[in-house]
Design a protein around this nucleic acid. Structure first.
Lengths: 191, 191
DNA sequence: TTTTTTAATTGAACACTGTTTAATTGTGTG
DNA sequence: CACACAATTAAACAGTGTTCAATTAAAAAA
């Protein structure tokens, strides 16, 4: 399984091969099909691993982040980009793999994905001086989409074509602009 | 060539096959390689066609758009989403096809891509009561990334998972929030 | 321990795919 | 007509995903 993750990180989604992954793990393709139930499930498992690493990366970056609210959001977005850049192939594979609705996703795999949004939920709720309620979570999904868009176009090369050289900076600017529309005054300490 | 476009629209990028596309056009795979120079160039040509259709779609939608600035931006974003939804496979193929830097992109293909950003440049400059200068174009790329992110996560199903049912609406809200930070007062008619 | 049952793993087959290249067919020109 | 040049093909090669009967290994039961 870790061989599969390594292979996709090395070659990218398009040139990934289940046969080759099995070969490297001293197995046969058939084993992958029997153990995981199919190629899609195998890829889902590989991508879950990437999600876990990504979450860890974000948490690690937040430890050394500034304590002011804007600084913390900036650190979060930069870490988001940092992971994507450092693990380009693995990161892109998450979105390259299109799963059709017929395939059921294991609870375990769903949890790996929720971990990531959970981190953002927490940080944004904090930046807005709000609790982690439904309205915040909806906004968070939208902010994630905003950052995702910048990151995806950047790594796919569409942005190089468009001569933007600091996509992360642009994403941060947009996120902060958006947040000012939703910000609430920090509650004062009771006196 | 139009067979290739039809095939990718029908099957999606992952299940697209150059051989099958050739077959449908009563040709042989070899012909594609000789005419286009390789599979990548063929896919670029197919995607250029999608870009052209997309631009046409946006222009068509703008004809019937409201005349107020926010309404026009909203119409633009909705049309963006509308095209992507109506031509899911073709639209996603644009981003599924990763071109490595070694492959040169024809001027003609570049122009098809610039047409689209050109439309957005124009509309945003208009919404901001500004000319179409470099600063606006930089913001526009960022806005496109913002909308792209919402649209991509939506169609890839990541958003369904996150239970958002109006991603276009969310994208519009974000874009308008961002624009208020960059807006300039409309120049008054000389009196 | 030996036998039986269950799980893991393989190997081989099938129908595809992309890619290359020599050979062939078609098409206009001198 | 014969020639040159472009378009097109056929065949081969090395891969791929997918399936499944047959084999091997491990666990449980006798």
């Amino acid at each position: 399984m870790s061989c599969g993750h390594d292979l996709i990180a090395e070659r990218g989604f398009a040139k990934f091969s289940a046969r080759e992954a099995a070969r490297r793990a001293d197995y046969t393709v058939g084993t992958i099909y029997n153990v995981f139930g199919g190629l899609d499930q195998y890829l889902i498992a590989i991508n879950s691993r990437t999600f876990e690493r990504w979450s860890d990366w974000l948490e690690a970056a937040l430890v050394n982040a500034p304590t002011d609210q804007a600084g913390r959001i900036e650190a979060l977005v930069r870490a988001y980009f940092g992971f994507a850049q450092t693990h380009q192939n693995a990161w892109m594979a998450i979105y390259d793999h299109r799963i059709d609705r017929s395939i059921a996703i294991d609870r375990e795999d769903e949890k790996a994905r929720e971990l990531l949004t959970g981190i953002v939920d927490r940080e944004v709720a904090n930046a807005l001086n709000l609790g982690d309620d439904e309205a915040v979570r909806r906004l968070v999904r939208s902010l994630i989409a905003t950052v995702h868009g910048h990151c995806a176009l950047w790594l796919s090369g569409s942005f190089a074509l468009l001569q933007e050289d600091d996509p992360a900076g642009q994403a941060i600017d947009r996120v902060l602009e958006i947040l000012t529309h939703h910000i609430t005054l920090a509650p004062q300490a009771a006196d």
